[in-house]
Design a protein around this nucleic acid. Structure first.
Lengths: 200, 200
DNA sequence: GTCTATAGAAAGATAGAC
DNA sequence: GTCTATCTTTCTATAGAC
């Protein structure tokens, strides 16, 4: 997507269509999404969607890329000289304690999109890729901590998978229930777990 | 559902419809589910569905109850005199190391159904209820361990929420990616976490 | 590139015979 | 209770003018 310099341009028709799709998904969910409903969120006409995308399927695949790119950009991690702070930084970005309405919306949308991976191989590959990248990021931070001697010599990948599972589980809980206290409890417990297991 | 003695009867038309809906959901996912596709999995005709249920929506609400009841029955926990074994028992039922194809299907279906909770209040309440019950079960087991003096005096609810988040996160990963090793890693890490935190 | 109009298929739902 | 036939609405997608 970032290959074409115009692709990310604000106001390009393709971007407007992606934004309209985003709004339609938030309102109706994936199972209630239709071309007409996307057009309802779009300034131009329904048939103009078909000028830019060959089919609904084609549009949805493009949206998947769009949404995944945005998500990964929003989680992008800067490394500091404090691995524990880096870890907490990733956790806060993936599961903010006080999410804005927009953060809530994005995560709800991702949970909804992700469920399509149950029956659609293309979605499956994308979300496997996301998880793989996140585990890689987490593993690298943990290994840096081990190298610097501030962390215990744990199995970094195993701990990273544990952290990711907690984050994904809490993210799903937040998007699909009103058990906000559960999210807080999971986050607190996760921090104390990392403190116990990593800090020497 | 268990109020009416005939409701659970094998071979009752309502049960056949629920089974047909189950198969249609496995094949097409929630977003691809239609009355015609349910009828395709059903011995009788499409219009007979409307004799038993007023609308697609009505049928789906009934199916939600059916599926949740089956899930909760499959997770039902017997208590022993070994709290750690009870805990591992719940974990193994919710996230089996070697799931059968049927267990895989049920969990994939639950992940798919759950995503409807993002935009449908009725689904939201159901899944909040499921999580609440599971946390209660886990909390009780942990508190029993504390009372017996075999567990440390931890915040039982907090640990229970942590465990549930790992289980839900790994369940979603299993249903939406092919990262089976991630599930194994999360389970191993979860066990060692419980051992570290609980065992005195 | 965007529009209006519409084709053609599939959706949810009902009528009326048996 | 179940059937076939059919209605209406909604859906995806295209034709053709501008």
């Amino acid at each position: 997507m970032a290959v074409d310099p115009d692709a990310d341009e604000r106001g390009s028709t393709e971007t407007e269509i992606m934004e309209a799709t985003y709004r339609a998904l938030c309102k109706h969910g994936y199972s209630g999404l239709s071309i007409s409903r996307i057009a309802d969120e779009f300034e131009k006409s329904k048939s103009s969607l078909y000028y830019h995308y060959d089919s609904k399927d084609d549009l949805l695949v493009a949206f998947l890329t769009f949404a995944v790119d945005r998500f990964e950009a929003s989680v992008a991690t800067e490394r500091s000289d404090d691995p524990m702070a880096d870890l907490e930084g990733v956790i806060e970005r993936l599961l903010p304690l006080r999410p804005t309405d927009e953060q809530r919306q994005i995560q709800a949308l991702l949970v909804d999109l992700r469920s399509q991976a149950v029956t659609d191989e293309r979605f499956r590959e994308r979300f496997a890729d996301i998880d793989e990248r996140l585990v890689t990021t987490l593993t690298e931070v943990i290994e840096r901590g081990i190298e610097r001697g501030t962390f215990n010599e744990v199995d970094a990948t195993r701990v990273a998978e544990h952290v990711l599972a907690v984050l994904n589980g809490a993210m799903v809980a937040r998007a699909t229930t009103d058990r906000e206290a559960a999210v807080a409890a999971a986050r607190v417990s996760l921090s104390s777990y990392l403190d116990t297991v990593l800090r020497r």
